[in-house]
Write a protein that binds this DNA or RNA. Structure first.
Length: 634
DNA sequence: CGGCTGTACTG
DNA sequence: CAGTACA
DNA sequence: GCCG
């Protein structure tokens, strides 16, 4: 294996991932010279505090929790950062301990700050995470407030900014914290001018609701016939607990922690758009309003700027190439890595900064390093200049043609799209894909989508009064340009949706709106359950002769919330959530959220979904913080 | 070293 | 069933 | 390619 990382430093340190492992301490990790005190409470579990403590320590800082007991004024004296869930918790605690006035050199931050730092592998600016003024530093206040926090200067790049004070015995244990010798000015809340309130988004901690427990009861009850009451409960409960690792105690929390980090990573820096708040039709009414509004103007604001576009564009290319080659796992890895890197709150200055960032491993870091150094990526250059590969990419960009077919077509001697047009072996879908090649590749504006929405909704309404007809997909996630329009249709009465797709399809075709069917749908078995029907096709862009991709799905109201989550996506988000669900004992699909009990090697999936009337229910059952659609652009 | 999301149409 | 597609 |  290659040992690339910088000279002089043990290669291990940088590849060792954030280190829940206190044994590996990155001496100049991102928390170098940070002396942190964590205030318990506010719903944060002691266990979580300890995890954070280990991480901070592993990343070069020192940290301790201010857990029960009177405690340790000395600790406070030398602290550089005091973190708590909320201002209230902080005040409460500090008063109790009579430390008012002592924490002169510390800045008070929300745990969110810590999470962000861990997620981005850098000390992010504390500005947006300051806890509101407490008064305990009142005495020192005159300290004029440089505007920089220790070690965060503007936050662009982390650690190196700090004066190298003491060679710092960042005691891995929990001895009294060494004093960060001077130098640091202690800015305390310089920026109180900030309008508070928004500064400290209350941490929400996914409380692992008792679903799990109940579920276990029921799931097991079914098999064992016992009521599964508590401790004694038969082997069934124990097995189930073991299966999900509750035994070791930490698996569950590691998973929660992992997911929280993933979420934090996607939320950072993203100011929340006002007004985008309630447009998702989940809150007030279970179903989206029938009159437009709900989606005509929705969550605005596409993704924030990608500060690392110079890097991600290369990695994106690699992703596309591996997709075309059918190397789905590499492609997946690159897609995830890009998703993470493009949201970093800082511009990458050194590949080292990526140590411990989830989803970015040694090999990607190496590539980042190369790009930073040379502005190019040799591997990519060679792949891009490969003529065959170019053809494969071209072919697989046709709807209906994937990696395998592309290869097949190539081996038949085809080299251009023109070559393909004559080939009768192409599937019907691929032929259509070819016919509409340009238009399928084209994007449309939100206005275009809105016009299509209005049209489809009007037709649906006239066929089936009271119908709900929402645009999902990238449009709902707030993207500025959309590659297709994605309808999720249902009827609140829970039954009128049956057979609706056929009628709608017929109508939309009759009026010359639907122009081609890329995939048809089960022509309903009316009577029974028909939870869903899906149609993929081409439609005419109103007012033009252009065509665009359109998908229409009609789902039963019973599964609407889960279907909405599914079709809102994005794909990476869906995969992550579903993976998390699996790991915590559920199976999530567009049809519901199903408890899973693992016994030995076998998995038993409940046949009935947990009740999910709204998207929020889905998140809540999983113990996840709710994410607005625009926060699901993972 | 093995898993990485879950589902549905097409041919 | 393999391949492709949808999020 | 990344992760446990």
């Amino acid at each position: 294996m290659k040992r690339s990382p910088g000279p002089g430093r043990p290669a291990r340190a940088s590849c060792k991932r954030t280190a829940s492992d206190p044994l590996v301490v990155q001496k100049d990790g991102i928390f170098r010279d940070v002396h942190m005190v964590l205030i318990p409470g506010g719903g944060i579990l002691e266990k979580q505090l300890q995890i954070w403590c280990r991480k901070v320590t592993a990343l070069g800082g020192s940290c301790r929790t201010l857990s029960s007991g009177p405690t340790t004024a000395d600790v406070i004296d030398v602290a550089t950062h005091i973190a708590a869930a909320t201002t209230a918790r902080l005040e409460q605690r500090m008063e109790k301990v009579e430390l008012v006035g002592r924490a002169a050199r510390a800045v008070a931050v929300s745990f969110k700050w810590l999470e962000e730092c861990l997620a981005s592998a850098a000390q992010v600016p504390v500005d947006n995470f300051l806890l509101r003024e407490v008064g305990w530093y009142e005495h020192d206040k005159e300290g004029p407030t440089g505007s920089e926090q220790p070690g965060t200067a503007g936050g662009a790049c982390p650690a190196p900014l700090m004066e190298h004070v003491t060679a710092k015995a960042a005691s891995p244990g929990y001895e009294p914290l060494p004093l960060p010798t001077s130098g640091l000015s202690l800015p305390l809340n310089n920026s109180l001018s900030l309008d508070d309130s928004t500064n400290c988004p209350a941490l929400s901690h996914p409380s692992p609701s008792n679903d799990r427990v109940q579920r276990e009861g029921t799931a097991c009850g079914v098999r064992a016939g016992s009521d599964g009451s508590d401790d004694e409960a038969g082997p069934c409960v124990r097995d189930a607990l073991q299966a999900r690792g509750a035994r070791g105690g930490s698996r569950e929390e590691r998973l929660q922690e992992w997911m929280r980090t993933e979420v934090a990573l996607r939320r950072q820096g993203r100011p929340r758009e006002e007004g985008a708040e309630t447009q998702d039709g989940c809150e007030a009414s279970q179903y989206p309003e029938v009159d437009d509004e709900s989606t005509l103007e929705g969550a605005e604001g596409d993704i924030p700027l990608d500060l690392n576009e110079h890097i991600t564009r290369h990695l994106r290319e690699l992703k596309d190439i591996y997709e075309a080659l059918g190397d789905e796992w590499r492609a997946l890895t690159y897609r995830r890595a890009v998703g993470v890197l493009e949201r970093l709150s800082f511009r990458i200055a050194s590949a080292e900064q990526l140590a411990g960032v989830m989803g970015v491993g040694q090999q990607v870091r190496d590539k980042v390093k190369e790009i930073l150094g040379t502005g190019r990526l040799a591997k990519l250059d060679s792949l891009q200049s490969d003529a065959k590969l170019r053809v494969l990419r071209l072919f697989s960009s046709v709807f209906g043609v994937g990696a395998k077919t592309a290869l097949e077509l190539y081996s038949r001697g085809h080299r251009s799209l023109a070559d393909l047009r004559g080939d009768p072996s192409l599937s019907r879908q691929a032929q259509l894909g070819l016919r509409y090649y340009e238009e399928i590749g084209a994007k449309m504006s939100r206005d275009d989508v809105a016009r299509i929405h209005a049209l489809v909704q009007a037709q649906a309404e006239s066929i089936c009064p009271g119908v709900s007809c929402e645009v999902t997909g990238s449009y709902r996630r707030g993207r500025i340009m959309c590659g297709d329009v994605d309808f999720l249709v249902t009827h609140p009465d829970g039954k009128s949706h049956r057979g609706l797709l056929a009628r709608l399809h017929q109508r939309l075709t009759a009026i010359g709106f639907l122009m081609a069917d890329l995939r048809s749908f089960d022509d309903d078995d009316q009577g029974g359950g028909a939870l869903c029907q899906t149609y993929l096709g081409m439609c005419r862009l109103p007012g033009t002769d252009d065509h665009r991709r359109i998908d229409i799905k009609v789902y039963s109201a019973a599964v609407y919330a889960c279907a909405l989550v599914h079709f809102t996506g994005n794909e990476v988000f869906n995969r992550k959530v579903r993976f998390f669900a699996l790991q915590t004992g559920f199976k999530l699909s567009e049809y519901g959220l199903f408890p899973v009990t693992k016994i030995g090697k076998r998995k038993f999936v409940d046949k009935t979904s947990l009740p999910c009337a709204t998207e929020r229910d889905v998140f809540a059952h999983l113990g996840l913080e709710y994410l607005e659609p625009h926060e699901r652009n993972w």
